[in-house]
Nucleic acid binder design. Structure first.
Lengths: 192, 192
DNA sequence: CAAAAAAGAATGAACATTCACTATTATCTG
DNA sequence: CAGATAATAGTGAATGTTCATTCTTTTTTG
């Protein structure tokens, strides 16, 4: 049992090291040797937990995406009114991006880079399913515009990635006031 | 003169090759050897035109950004009404992203990756200055919300990158109808 | 003590960059 | 304007390093 625990810890350390390296310097700076070193492990050990580098990155992507979804749907009461529900999810997602800047910067790197297989990407999308359902409900109730979820996503969720990116680079401070302003912009753009 | 012409062509070929390789496979797939091969040139020749790989990528970034700005401000009549001006620029930018998918995908890769120096990034930002001026004018006229240009950018320009990304992956077709719908969303989110 | 986990050293391939050299073009001289 | 010379542009092969991955050996563990 202690053994299993240790294994889990080691795998987590490897994922964390990879996240950190990719985040500060991109994929080019994240060599297996450096990952191993940062995780205080032999390069060979990586191959006990991951098939190869691509597998390591795919698994990292999925694990971060899962974390993201977990935060996104915290305290989500699906029988609340649509706007209330959406606000909850939106603020949760923003909070994730605020509290876990490395994870969220990694995700936006993945989204704009041929780093992740299309297949793994699709798997990651599944985590967001409750949001899509909510939008459908909003559209059925005539509260949300009858447009593609891609448009809804583009104008409500995607912009926060940009804002947090600017925040991380210290070009624009995103505090709670800005956040609530941003939600207003997001909601205004998709409400009927 | 013929010599200079040839040099310019060669430099352009190198930039184009780099763009293409980074675009299909990320920076990791764009080795100097591959770039040289695709540009039909010796690896050593690259170093006649560029200091090193980072310089090559920086120059590529700036040249693409310049192209982007050139298209963005085509037919821009700065004494037209604010909304008209903005629509012109917005549609120009969208057209660039539609017509030059490689260039625009490259730019969004740069924006979310530690690929480009902060300094070069700042240089690239200068190209968009007319848009920021327009926003200021709109705010002075009480037409556009009194919020940071980062928010304005996040909710009007940034989302199109996502849409075009999805379009390129054939997950969501962005035709003229969608484009005008998207502009509506963008404008609605920032207008007073 | 057997089996699993981990290590370090070793592998060939690929990397960015440089080297010594050749081909091409421009400039100068009579 | 012909021929020599200088300057520039371009090259393929070589450099030392780093890469992802594997091999053999050692350590840990139930």
């Amino acid at each position: 049992m202690a053994k299993l625990q240790k294994s889990i810890q080691k795998k987590a350390a490897l994922l964390k090291a990879t996240l950190h390296l990719i985040n500060n310097g991109g994929i080019q700076e994240a060599s297996m040797a450096k990952i191993a070193k940062l995780a205080a492990v032999s390069p060979a050990t990586i191959y006990l937990y991951f098939e190869n580098k691509q597998d390591l990155i795919n698994q990292l992507y999925l694990s971060v995406k899962e974390m993201y979804a977990k935060v996104a749907f915290e305290n989500y009461e699906s029988n609340n009114p649509v706007k209330k529900c959406f606000e909850q999810i939106w603020l949760n997602m923003a909070r994730f991006k605020q509290d876990m800047p490395e994870e969220s910067s990694f995700l936006s790197q993945c989204d704009n880079t041929p780093m992740i297989d299309e297949e793994t990407r699709e798997q990651g999308l599944v985590y967001l399913h409750p949001l899509f359902s909510l939008w459908e409900r909003g559209q059925a109730e005539g509260i949300i515009k009858e447009i593609s979820p891609y448009l809804l996503y583009a104008y409500t969720i995607y912009p926060t990635a940009f804002l947090m990116n600017m925040h991380a680079r210290e070009l624009f401070k995103v505090d709670n006031e800005v956040l609530h302003l941003a939600f207003q912009l997001a909601w205004d753009s998709i409400k009927v």
